[in-house]
């Protein structure tokens, strides 16, 4: 069964001595902010063959390069809780990722969000891709044409931000 990826900030998921095993701290909810009662995930193959493609696709939309923190967990764990998952189009400018790998969990209640937090805490694998590594991945996918850089570059230019997508920059 495939895995689901959600972008997080790792420190919000550190185990806390004052919490029972498998329970997420309240700050973890900051990484599960629903929009229209939906949460956005990316589906990752069992082999993780598309993991770096997805990571680069998401990271390319950032204002500046940064580490990429994420969690992976088994999609069946959501099904067991009754949370509905649907295939939707992503918004990353990585055509393949947007078309095939984006998922939304929909019709979420507040209780569902808390359940997802605890599933991630108990069963998720939290990882970090370093800034230098993810920036290189993004540039590789841009130079190969996998990620369409034009709208991303335009957005950075319009907002007066350095174009880190195609060269090393500082703020």
């Amino acid at each position: 069964m495939p895995l689901l990826l959600r972008v997080i900030r790792k420190p919000r998921w550190y185990k806390q001595a004052w919490l029972e095993e498998g329970k997420a701290q309240a700050n973890a909810i900051l990484d599960l902010r629903p929009q229209e009662n939906k949460l956005s995930f990316w589906q990752i193959e069992d082999s993780k063959s598309n993991l770096y493609q997805v990571a680069a696709a998401v990271a390319a939309g950032r204002d500046s390069p940064a580490n990429f923190d994420y969690v992976l967990f088994d999609q069946t764990l959501l099904t067991k809780t009754g949370v509905k998952t649907e295939h939707t189009v992503g918004r990353s400018f990585h055509r393949e990722a947007d078309k095939y790998w984006h998922r939304d969990t929909c019709q979420l209640s507040a209780e569902n969000v808390a359940e997802i937090a605890n599933i991630i805490m108990e069963h998720g694998t939290r990882q970090r891709i370093r800034e230098s590594e993810i920036a290189n991945l993004v540039r590789q996918l841009i130079s190969s044409g996998t990620i369409d850089v034009n709208p991303l570059r335009d957005r950075l230019t319009q907002n007066g931000k350095p174009n880190w997508l195609e060269s090393n920059t500082v703020v």
């Binding site: 972008v7 900030r9 902010r33 950032r62 204002d63 931000k161």
Partner: peptide
């Protein structure tokens, strides 16, 4: 504010 890796906010812009 809500902070995401690599995303500017009014806070980061003003701080810089």
């Amino acid at each position: 504010l809500y902070f995401e890796d690599g995303m500017e906010t009014d806070f980061s812009r003003e701080l810089i």
